[in-house]
Amino acid sequence: MSEVIVVTSGKGGVGKTTTTANVGTGLAAMGKKVILIDTDIGLRNLDVVMGLENRIVYNLVDVVEGNCRIKQAIIRDKRYPTLFLLPSAQTRDKSAVNPSQMVKMIEHLKDQFDYIILDCPAGIEQGFQNAIAGADRALVVTTPEVSAIRDADRIIGLLEANEIHKMDLVINRIRYDMIRRGDMMSSEDVVDILSLPLIGMVPDDESVVIATNQGEPLVGSNTLAGRAYQNICHRILGREVPFLDLEKGISFWAKVSGIFHKN
């Protein structure tokens, strides 16, 4: 049974592409057959985060327009044999593809892959509509900031309106030192506001920048962010994994220092 997951956020720059790359890589490392689809037409990014930018011949728009067979456009990952990427087009715009074409293409891919992961563009225009058209479930990525949470709330409403009810929340760029000082909303605060089930908390970790520089997803590596992404993958597979120890340890201290900040 294949599952189609859209990674979305509304606001740009909160970590959709990084989440897509790491969740996809993590699931492939766990033996699943995974295809990542970059739906951000005109601003393609997933290929560089994956380090596969030199292998692109055809892209999503070529597939939809029938310029090539879908097999010709799909790139195999250099690390995992069960991980694939369908890159987006860089020189076209959002209107080159419509939602019904996406649904048709995804239906075609469903019997070949366990997981189809769609990296959604920022915004709520056609690119968003394309990305969510064929999705069964959504990962809503946000950061503990007012603007990102507001946009996430909008996105949640739009997903509900489009009958995508299976939604999980990924909170990215968490800075525990700031939470401790009372200068950043905690994951509990964000969950409280958005009322979605939490599937992952990713710390703001330098290793994410380093990994992106190198074009190597960091899932599974011995970094905090790497472990956080690994845990998200387990939870997607339905396994119950406790949230990271350090997060727990620090959130205890956040509570203690919170006493001094309150009232």
Partner: peptide, 24 residues
């Protein structure tokens, strides 16, 4: 000094009000 709100609480309060009006 004790009564001063942390920026976390300010953010939470602003969001709550903001989302109410966004939603309706």
């Amino acid at each position: 000094i004790l009564k001063r709100k942390s920026s976390r609480e300010i953010a939470k309060d602003r969001l709550k009000i903001l989302l109410i009006s966004d939603r309706v």
